[in-house]
Every structure is written in structure tokens, then in C-alpha cells.
Simulated scan of single mutants.
Amino acid sequence: GEKANYPRFYRQSLDKLAKEQRILSRRKKGSARWEKQRLKVAELQEKTANQRKNFLHHQSKELATTYDAVIIEDLDMKGMSQALHFGKSVHDNGWGMFTTFLSYKLKEQGKQLVKIDKWFPSTKKCSCCGAEKPMKLSERTYRCSCGYVAYRDYNSAINIKNEGIRLLALT
């Protein structure tokens, strides 16, 4: 029932980064001032990367210590960023880095990470009765013919959890 509430570090630093990059573009390449400005831009980018990495380490540690098994959907983030025009937002999340952190932290503690196939219809399936219906990305509320109504992502999370439990029972 909780949302991730990702802080969007790249979006926060975008204005400052754009300003510093504009200054860099006006400098003569190879000059001392250009090199100094290049380092400023690099430091801003490194700070953003470090903030993201720190946040992801904390989130993955919290999940790894709290739960014996974590179930996630194996998403194609590169494809999503290109196809759905969410490029900056998708890449700002660092999903691949998060799954890597989560995976090794769970493995260290002898716990399990279950990945659900990316083609599993988690969004289209009713978590109450199991019926499937097509949904547009713009539809944010899932409404089933059985009368079940829920927020789209919440319904999807329940379906992923149920599928993960089913897969755990098989092993």
C-alpha cells in the first residue's frame, strides 16, 4: 500500500546543470577556464549520481532486512523510456541499479528475489476475480466487471505479489 516516492534527483539539479553547461559551451575548448567549468559540470553530475546511489542503497537495505522474499516485475526500462517518452524520468529512477543492489543484499542474507516476467499482465488482470481487460496508459483507475475498483498501480502490485507467491510455492 506504500508508494516509493522517488526524490527525482536529476530533475532537481536540471536547472543548475543546464546553466553550468551553457557556460561551458561558451568557453573555448581546451582553455584553462573551459577545463575549470568542465569540472564544475562533472561535479554536479557526480553529486546527482551519488544522491541516487545513496537513496537506492537505503531503499534496498530496508527491503532486504524487512522481508524474506521480495517480488519485482522484470521491466525493460530502456524500452519503456523510448516507447513511452518517459526518458529522463525512467533513467532518473535507476531501476537496474536498484535491482542489482537488492539482489546482492538479499543473497547475502539468504533471502529470495523473485522476478516476474515482463509479459505478465499485471496491469490488465483483476486482482479480485482474475479477469483480464485491456487498459490504456492514461487510465489510472482499474474498474472490473465484477465491481472491483482500485488504483491501477495498486491492483498491479497485488497481481505481482500473488504471482510471486505462486512461483515461490512451485520451488
Rank of each mutant, 00 (worst) to 15 (best):
I116R: 04
E46D: 13
F9G: 00
L56S: 01
P121W: 02
A64T: 07
S145H: 11
G164M: 04
L137E: 09
P134N: 04
C144S: 04
E20Y: 14
L137T: 11
W34L: 00
K53Y: 09
E139G: 07
A150I: 11
A150V: 11
S145K: 11
Y142R: 04
E20T: 11
G1M: 14
G87W: 06
T65E: 12
C146M: 06
P134H: 05
L14Q: 15
P134M: 05
K47Y: 06
K105D: 02
C144W: 01
A18F: 08
V149R: 10
N159F: 06
T66L: 10
K3P: 01
E163R: 15
C128T: 13
T66S: 11
S81T: 10
A64F: 07
E35W: 00
H85P: 05
Q112I: 13
L14S: 15
I71A: 05
H91T: 15
E20H: 12
E108A: 14
G147S: 03
C128M: 14
G30I: 01
S60N: 03
G96P: 01
S31F: 05
A4N: 13
A150K: 07
W95N: 01
R140H: 10
K28G: 03
K19M: 12
I71N: 04
G110W: 12
N93I: 15
A69H: 07
Q21M: 11
D153E: 09
Y67V: 09
S127D: 01
Q109D: 07
A150R: 04
R152G: 03
K118Y: 15
L14N: 13
A157L: 09
K29H: 06
V70T: 05
S138Q: 11
S122F: 01
Y67G: 02
R140M: 05
E2F: 14
I23C: 02
H58N: 14
M77Q: 12
L17F: 08
E132L: 13
D68Q: 14
W34A: 00
K40T: 09
H91Y: 15
R38V: 03
K115N: 03
A69C: 04
N5L: 11
L102F: 00
T100F: 00
C144Y: 02
S31T: 15
L44R: 05
